[in-house]
Design a protein around this nucleic acid. Structure first.
Lengths: 215, 215
DNA sequence: TGCGTTACATACCATTTAGTATGTAACGCA
DNA sequence: TGCGTTACATACTAAATGGTATGTAACGCA
């Protein structure tokens, strides 16, 4: 019953509230686009009010920027990059993650597309602030994948003459293309097209005919 | 000076006006998104008025539908499919069109993305009417490309065991992924990544090591 | 424990926007 | 050449939306 045991029981909590707004905003923006969701929508779902919102974010655009930097970019790296560290052969890791994050996903999850790609399509041409932040996000995704590919190249999994940055660029491009297509084309064969095609492509850049898809 | 010589000099012309609206709307929507452009914007650029607009289109959504069906889909087929008919080897034709329509294009043209892809990303999750029409557009793009691939397969340019529909799906996916990436990532190396990667991929599905990229 | 600060609540505003009601003049046909 | 039809113009509305002005009570520190 003492207050000291529950320091989180405060009725006002700056960090927590900000996080709540970002979380709700992420899902709303993810499913209904940035311009398609209103501040009123967000505050309604947070059980907060407009006053709270504008205490945390000076404008709606600033909320969008925070979404890119604090929610989406970490999520991308968390889902697509960090897991690669467990693989000796990054090409194997990429295909494995493809199956984990797309192949095994429910159609409903996929139909909303990729949070990063969605914002790129919608906001990059419209607002310079978004553009720079989205570009940074995409760049770090590609750069980090390139890092892993270079590691694989050094360890003999990729041919020496392969431009790893180009490969990383193409792989990310394929991912985004896939997610983008899913939003318009409800075709369950899409994943097979992506997966098998990327697998074929990888055979042209790997150092030797290793057997892949272990387990 | 006779009126009979110039039957187009009418001050009212149903078809012409409709075409004008569609043309202006296409460019506005292409550069500023569907939800981002208002009816007032469009009528201002057409030198027409709201009355004219609503005489032609019952709602804004109907304008969007017409854009997909009457402007964008024909444009896609015109740019990416019809030119393939001049090629014995469709794989060669696809790479050639890639160079013609992307490689030689000005960066400003590309930065706006692909009109079809833009609408897919923005409107497919939001409106069912858009969804069905955009899906039909994507499907016909893939189907038509598949048709050419099958022709190439029959003529000995693709391996017999290749799933041509899957290839078509992947190629379109790469196109859209490329256009999508361009909107967020102002990287001139993007085209090289797409072009060379697709070229590598094609070597894994072609029937025999033919020399490609003639002239 | 009182008091200044701040994390939020409430009420309101200006603008934008899709859509409508209604008017008018250009057109084609008798 | 008169007249009904229609291709468009003008003027307006209701709702949604980003943002603001201002109030209040929870918090932490003296």
């Amino acid at each position: 019953m003492t207050a000291k045991a529950t320091p989180k029981k405060r009725t006002r909590n700056l960090e927590q509230t900000r996080k709540t707004i970002l979380d709700v905003a992420f899902f709303e923006v993810f499913s209904r686009s940035f311009q398609g969701v209103s501040i009123d929508d967000i505050v309604a779902r947070t059980k907060l009010t407009k006053g709270a919102f504008y205490h945390h974010f000076p404008t709606k655009l600033d909320l969008g920027y925070a979404l890119v930097e604090e929610v989406i970019t970490p999520m991308i790296l968390d889902r697509w990059i960090f897991p690669l560290e467990a693989f000796e052969n990054p090409l194997e890791g990429i295909l494995e993650q493809l199956h984990n994050l797309i192949g095994k996903a429910q159609p409903e999850e996929l139909r909303l597309g990729c949070p990063l790609n969605n914002l790129v399509q919608e906001m990059a041409p419209v607002d310079a602030g978004f553009r720079t932040r989205l570009e940074a996000s995409l760049t770090s995704w590609i750069d980090e994948m390139d890092r892993h590919l270079k590691r694989g190249q050094k360890n003999g999994y990729l041919r020496e003459d392969v431009n790893t940055r180009q490969v990383a660029h193409f792989v990310v491009m394929s991912h985004e293309g896939f997610y983008g297509m899913l939003k318009g084309l409800n075709d369950p064969r899409a994943f097979a097209a992506l997966s098998s095609s990327l697998q074929m492509y990888f055979t042209t850049i790997e150092a030797k005919p290793t057997k892949r898809r272990t387990a």
